[in-house]
Simulated scan of single mutants.
Amino acid sequence: MNPYPHELQFGDVYITPWIPMLALAFFLSLLTAILFNRLRLSRWVVAHAYVFLAIMLFYMVLIDHFWIKVF
Results as ranks from 00 to 15, higher is better:
Ile15Cys: 03
Thr16Cys: 10
Thr16Lys: 15
Thr16Pro: 11
Pro17Glu: 03
Pro17Lys: 12
Trp18Asp: 15
Ile19Ser: 12
Pro20Thr: 07
Pro20Ser: 08
Met21Trp: 01
Met21Ala: 15
Leu22Thr: 05
Ala23Arg: 05
Ala23Gln: 11
Ala23Glu: 04
Leu24Arg: 09
Leu24Gly: 09
Leu24His: 10
Leu24Thr: 14
Ala25Lys: 05
Ala25Leu: 07
Phe26Thr: 14
Phe27Glu: 06
Leu28Pro: 09
Leu30Cys: 03
Leu30Asp: 06
Leu31Phe: 10
Leu31Glu: 06
Thr32Glu: 01
Thr32Leu: 02
Ala33Gln: 09
Ile34Gln: 15
Ile34Glu: 09
Phe36Thr: 02
Asn37Asp: 13
Asn37Ala: 15
Arg38Pro: 07
Arg38Trp: 14
Arg38Asn: 12
Leu39Trp: 13
Leu39Phe: 08
Arg40Pro: 00
Leu41Pro: 05
Leu41Gln: 08
Ser42Tyr: 14
Ser42Asp: 05
Ser42Trp: 13
Arg43Glu: 03
Arg43Tyr: 04
Arg43Thr: 06
Val45Arg: 00
Val45Phe: 01
Val45Lys: 01
Val45Glu: 00
Val45Ala: 02
Val45Met: 08
Val46Asp: 00
Val46Asn: 08
His48Ile: 07
His48Met: 04
His48Asp: 06
His48Leu: 13
His48Lys: 14
Tyr50Ile: 15
Phe52Met: 12
Leu53Cys: 09
Leu53Ala: 15
Leu53Gly: 02
Leu53Trp: 01
Ala54Lys: 05
Ala54Thr: 11
Ala54Asn: 03
Ile55Ala: 15
Ile55Asn: 04
Met56Phe: 09
Met56Val: 12
Tyr59Gln: 09
Tyr59Glu: 14
Met60Lys: 04
Met60Pro: 10
Met60Leu: 01
Val61Gly: 09
Val61Ile: 05
Leu62Cys: 13
Leu62Ser: 05
Leu62Asn: 09
Leu62Met: 14
Leu62Arg: 03
Ile63Gln: 13
Ile63Val: 09
Asp64Cys: 00
Asp64Gly: 04
His65Trp: 04
His65Phe: 13
His65Ile: 02
Phe66Lys: 10
Trp67His: 13
Trp67Tyr: 07
Trp67Met: 11
Ile68Met: 09
Ile68Thr: 02
Ile68Cys: 03
Ile68Tyr: 04
